[in-house]
Design a protein around this nucleic acid. Structure first.
Lengths: 141, 141
DNA sequence: TCAATTTTAATAAATATTATCAAAAAATAA
DNA sequence: TTATTTTTTGATAATATTTATTAAAATTGA
């Protein structure tokens, strides 16, 4: 059970001049805890502790936080859009079997060589495949 | 004006045991012509020549052709999902200003080094930035 | 505490996608 | 060619998803 550093989450909102509300802190803490979440997963988790929170509030806050560069939007084939806390660049490995998403620290300087620094704003790199856990399971069959 | 090779499009469908219909050929020819299209763009173009074609038919065929590996689904931040003919790997450059999508021939062997060949099924690489045309326009202001 | 501003919840409205099914079309066999 | 089987289409209903609206509540700074 991870201890949530709410002061840190508050500072993220303050930096962007977004008001600190329990709803926003709860959304952020869940995303921090789970790593990558889509709207439905968020709504499901949130209903456990904040049964009154409106789905519209989640949609609104997610989009505000994406616009303000607090959250990163990850669009994945055959899945709902996922959100994660914005962090240093990393790629994602997506298991097409169990749907799990893993962060990958990959150096992408080799593919950005030819590009003008100023013209590149961000990079999304997704590698689809079968994760180790699923691979093992398959071998047992 | 590109000449469409319908025999080639038919062979694509035949290989996957999908029946050849005017609707499917038209969808494929448009995607071949435009490169990357979303459902709305397709519907708009299709209405010009096949005003009677149902939106449901487009949705159905797109998903059938994605499932059969004829089309590739490209999910892009802040945009509707785009579809392209499946081809050899290439990355996409997405201009965040004019929304244009460019194919990029980038060698990604350098980032796949650490991976077990068997565990990787596909890779999506998207580079977001400002395209040359938009860069020039900005300099003029 | 008070006032200005933002955010929330509830819900309506708008969009987007999928399911249903009878009729039409395509492929295959006779 | 024609008949038969199977698939696909179009229309539309049903779902699902997302955005807009607005009064009430909460947050922030003075």
């Amino acid at each position: 059970m991870e201890v949530i550093d709410y002061a840190y989450l508050e500072s993220i909102l303050n930096k962007k001049n977004l008001k600190v509300t329990p709803q926003r802190l709860h959304i952020l803490s869940l995303i921090k805890q789970f790593g990558h979440m889509d709207i439905d997963e968020l709504y499901l988790q949130i209903k456990k502790n904040y049964p009154y929170m409106s789905l519209a509030t989640i949609y609104k806050n997610i989009s505000v936080m994406v616009e303000n560069g607090i959250l990163n939007e990850i669009k994945i084939a055959q899945q709902k859009t996922k959100y994660e806390l914005l962090a240093d660049f990393h790629a994602h490995f997506i298991c097409t079997n169990c749907k799990k998403i893993e962060d990958l620290d990959i150096d992408i300087s080799c593919i950005l060589k030819g590009f003008d620094q100023a013209s590149v704003q961000s990079v999304q790199l997704q590698i689809y495949g079968i994760c180790n856990a699923c691979q093992k399971k398959k071998n047992l069959i």
